[in-house]
Design a protein around this nucleic acid. Structure first.
Length: 427
RNA sequence: GGGAGAGUGCCGGAGUGGCCAAACGGGGCGGACUGUAAAUCCGCUGGCUUACGCCUACGGGGGUUCGAAUCCCUCCUCUCCCA
């Protein structure tokens, strides 16, 4: 059966950074169904937007009719990947890694189809690395690598040159674990190709080398570019916080907002990276955007599409209408806005008991609700005209807020130009 | 094993007895401008307090002093040089 060349597909979307042997890889993809794996490290209990690219690459693999294999690094997560890092990681506990791996496994299920025909597969390297003894490890894996070649890898070299941080033997060994993963998956899951971020190149080629030495066969690898926003390497951070894929950590509204605020210079790239829209359609979206950038057409499409992929149609629609309600100029007062907002806008509860003594000052209100970290910050914000309650700028820290200001038990608070929080009254 | 040096706020990095909640830069936040953008400009950036002020803070602990990030002792961590 003829297959689709995934590399061409990725290339067309600028998602291909480098590949080991493009011609050979293409032939492999075109001549049948190929198993292709991508690894995820369980360093947190949720994936964040930074993992969106790897996820969508796997999704592209599956859509192209190939077999997508998602590897959760239950074993590698215990060690820590030095790639792309200037200093040693702190080790995670066994329980943390286990919990994170489980959570990530569940999350991936939202993006890949694990049933029907051509189901994706999920594997955990703790299953095969865990049971190995140190002696097995050194004899079966270590013997195939010269330290000389390991030292030459960028991830190691940069750390060797940096006297300040250095690299531990533990992290130094990481690439061997990933190399062994590839070998194991090649043998047991028929994985012919591994994909990864551009910082994974050394780890991927180490795997290909190991496979060649142990089996005499040729495997392939490719990488995608590092996603950075034009402003620097801040992609995935909003107000200093990571943008998570878990709706409990980052609401669909916040998620939508992150993308709708994308800079003009990044939108086109993001549309290609984070949506499944055909490149021709993206081109025409960008054309329309160029006619009147102020309308933020491309950003709206981007935010809508990505939110839909991650959180589903209903949540995306809700995030979109909440955003429209809050940000449409001259779009009515707080009461009207609140009416159309669901829980998707960040919501903080506050106890009714606070009003026992009468109205609460604006400072205390936002401090109690946890909208700001401290009362000092609240005062500063008010001083600088950065706080609004029900769309009215608060002019004094002592500004009294009575229960009557709540509209159906909800207060609309805005900090800065465009950060909204709903404060909900509780008994 | 011997010798030298370093640990400061979110980060980098000044400060070497009082004028230090600690220069300067970055980051973050707020404002102006705008398109929920970029660039630019201005302001803020430990906690509590309406405020006077109080409290916590310069690796940990102890001490000297009217007073310590700054001096002494000790412990911990890191770096460099020699072996």
């Amino acid at each position: 059966m003829a297959g689709t060349d995934v590399l061409a597909l990725l290339k067309e979307r600028d998602m291909l950074y480098q590949a080991t042997d493009e011609a050979a890889t293409r032939v492999a993809f075109e001549s049948g169904r190929v198993s292709c794996y991508v690894g995820f490290d369980p360093t947190a209990r949720s994936l964040h937007v930074g993992s969106l690219l790897p996820i969508l690459v796997l999704a592209h693999v599956q859509r192209a009719g190939h077999r997508a294999v998602a590897l959760v690094g239950g074993a590698t997560g215990m060690v820590g990947d030095p790639s792309g890092r200037s200093s040693e990681r702190s080790l995670l506990s066994d329980a943390d890694v286990r919990g994170n791996a489980e959570a990530i496994r569940a999350q991936l299920a939202r993006f890949l189809r694990f049933d029907g025909d051509n189901p994706a597969a999920m594997v955990n390297n703790a299953d095969w690395i865990g049971p190995m003894s140190v002696i097995d490890w050194l004899r079966d894996v270590g013997k195939h690598f010269t330290v000389n070649s390991m030292l030459a890898k960028e991830s190691v070299r940069s750390r060797l040159e940096d006297r300040e941080h250095g690299i531990s033997y533990t992290e130094f060994s990481y690439m061997l674990m990933q190399a062994y993963d590839f070998y194991w998956l090649f043998e047991h899951e028929g994985c012919l190709v591994q994909g990864g971020g551009s910082d994974q190149w050394g780890n991927i080629t180490a795997g290909i080398d190991l496979i060649r030495r142990k089996t005499g066969k040729e495997a392939h690898g490719f990488t995608w570019p590092l996603v950075t926003s034009s402003a620097g390497e801040k992609f995935g951070k909003s107000a200093g916080n990571a943008v998570w894929l878990d709706a409990g950590l980052t609401t669909p509204y916040q998620f939508y907002q992150y993308f709708v605020r994308a800079e003009d210079v990044d939108v086109g790239k993001y549309l290609k990276f984070f949506t499944f829209l055909p490149v021709a359609e993206i081109a025409s979206i960008m054309d329309e955007h160029a006619r009147d950038p102020g309308k933020r057409h491309a950003q709206r499409v981007l935010a809508r599409e990505v939110t839909r992929i991650v959180h589903g149609e209903a949540a995306a629609a809700e995030a979109e209408s909440a955003s429209a309600a809050l940000f449409t100029r001259g779009g009515g007062g707080a009461a009207e806005k609140l009416k159309t907002l669901g829980d998707t806008v960040p919501t903080k509860p506050i106890s009714r008991a606070g009003w026992a003594e009468g109205p609460v000052s604006a400072v205390n209100l936002v401090a109690m609700a946890g909208v700001v970290a401290s009362k000092g910050e609240a005062r500063r914000l008010i001083d600088q005209k950065g706080l609004s309650i029900n769309e009215e700028v608060v002019t004094s820290p002592q500004h009294p807020v009575g229960l009557d200001r709540f509209i159906d038990g909800v207060l609309l608070v805005r900090t800065g130009k465009n950060n909204y929080t709903r404060i909900v009254l509780r008994d």
